[in-house]
Design a binder for these strands. Structure first.
Lengths: 166, 166
DNA sequence: ACCTGAACACCGTTCAAGT
DNA sequence: ACCTGAACACCGTTCAAGT
């Protein structure tokens, strides 16, 4: 909500100015700039629309999870890149990891490899979204449409998982 | 070389202090802090060991390229994360993209999909390396070894490419 | 309990002045 | 051609003092 403007141009002083208040008054409601950003991150993370555990095939659920994640990530690119450089914040996304596990198990990933595969797939998607958020995607594939590229990426992951299951 | 110490704690003033010189003297040799960082980035990028075009199978060449990239990326994590948020710097890695193209063509990727596949694979690997550089990898998969995780990731990509080729 | 002004220790960068 | 000091417009944060 605050970082809506630019990227990381948020400053306590500007924020205070926008709120018509003394910069130092902020420190009565938040411990530090980092604490404020963390709060904002967990707030937007709440908006992640996790696919329910109905009977739909795992492929569809994985696709749904990926798109839900893309949706919130790109809704606040600045905050998301902040999350991505703060491991503890990523790990804190409890619900997501639970759903991710469930889907991968359904996909036939053996328990011994679950953590590794999950981590690899998460960082893969995370890398693509970072590229999109930062404008790298448009630079590397100017003719391509971001959404279809994302779909292609998810397809590629599904291919790999299915190849691995057999 | 300069950013060896921490992450982005490099400041023109500290750098000048370390060089026992007036902070403002630096601006006679470099246009700005950004220009300096760009210079450093292209300097380390020179060290990328591209796999030669001998007859070795594309799988091996792709693996070699991936590991070479990981090697320079992790040798200067701070600079690399700087590169990753500056699309023009990424694109500038001419030689790498040429080799990447050659390998993907050898892997049977049709010309029409080359750019998209290449972009997706690059951002995938980039995401994993970012996770490793920032400590996210260790947090998400504490028991895992970073190198074997990277190998697994490359294997997954090879699986997907092979599945796609048939 | 909340707010405030002054202050501290930093930034990147400009610019006029020196050698 | 190179260096320099002072200055500008910023940061996040502390702290003593106010209401």
């Amino acid at each position: 909500m605050v970082g809506e403007g630019g990227v990381e141009g948020l400053s306590m002083r500007k924020l205070a100015a926008e709120l018509d208040v003394n910069p130092m008054s902020l420190y009565h409601h938040v411990e530090s700039k980092d604490a404020l950003l963390r709060g904002a991150c967990t707030a937007v993370a709440q908006g992640l629309a996790l696919p329910p555990d109905d009977g739909t095939p795992w492929q569809e659920q994985l696709r749904a999870l990926a798109h839900a994640y893309r949706s919130i990530a790109l809704s606040h690119p600045a905050l998301w890149s902040y999350v991505n450089s703060h491991p503890d914040l990523v790990e804190q996304e409890e619900g997501m990891w639970v759903v991710f596990n469930r889907v991968l198990v359904a996909a036939g990933v053996p328990a011994a490899e679950l953590l590794r595969i999950r981590t690899v797939l998460y960082t893969f998607v995370s890398g693509l979204l970072t590229a999109e958020a930062v404008g790298l995607l448009a630079e590397l594939d100017p003719a391509g449409d971001a959404e279809t590229t994302f779909d292609a990426a998810v397809d590629l992951i599904l291919d790999a998982l299915e190849a691995r299951a057999t």
